[in-house]
């Protein structure tokens, strides 16, 4: 029991590989501070400005992320995805893609299971494409590009997901004959 408690606490920390990239950048900064200190300092100041700019939208991101974690459960997403290849089913797959969270590769095995249980390629493709619409990141995107741009891009992304789903279904059907 003690052992499982420890392992549980360990998994709640970010995995080590996420630190590799920032560490490499810090090493580059270190080298640049030795070679060209003035330019490196200017770069650090620029980064500070960017950092201050992203803090307020990041706070919103956390709030939306929390709301999704509280109200959206993976079981609901699976239920939406298994709704068949009808228009309603495709729209529900799109909705499932929009509300789903976490890295995309986490969802692949689940997609495989759903396909084995009868979910079509179209629904899976629509789901995967709609993961491009990140509800929790919309405040951040609006802060950078404005709400009109975000609305247009979001609507076009959902429409493109259906086109993508139709094409994937069409080509996989033809080829598998």
């Amino acid at each position: 029991m003690e052992k499982s408690h420890k392992s549980k606490r360990k998994t709640s920390r970010p995995s080590g590989h996420v630190f590799i990239f920032p560490l490499i950048i810090l090493v580059i900064y270190g080298v640049l501070f030795v070679l060209v200190p003035e330019q490196a300092l200017a770069a650090l100041r620029d980064s500070g400005k960017v950092c201050l700019g992203i803090l307020p939208p990041l706070a919103f991101v956390f709030v939306v992320m929390l709301a999704l974690n509280l109200f959206v459960k993976p079981a609901q997403i699976v239920h939406l995805l298994g709704s068949g290849a009808s228009t309603k089913g495709i729209l529900l797959s799109a909705a499932a893609g929009i509300i789903s969270m976490g890295p995309i590769y986490v969802w692949y095995p689940l997609m495989k299971d759903l396909r084995e249980k009868g979910a079509g390629n179209m629904a899976i493709a629509v789901f995967l494409y709609n993961r491009a619409v990140k509800l929790f990141l919309l405040p951040m995107m609006i802060a950078y590009f404005g709400w009109v741009y975000v609305v247009i891009l979001t609507v076009l992304t959902v429409l493109a997901s259906i086109v993508n789903g139709c094409l994937v279904a069409m080509f996989t059907k033809k080829k598998t004959g």
Partner: peptide
């Protein structure tokens, strides 16, 4: 989820400074 996002985002922000200069 946030803790997993932050380190890379900090790296990217630092990169932007390098990129701009």
């Amino acid at each position: 989820q946030f803790a997993n996002i932050l380190p890379v985002t900090v790296g990217v922000v630092l990169c932007i400074g390098l990129f701009n200069n």
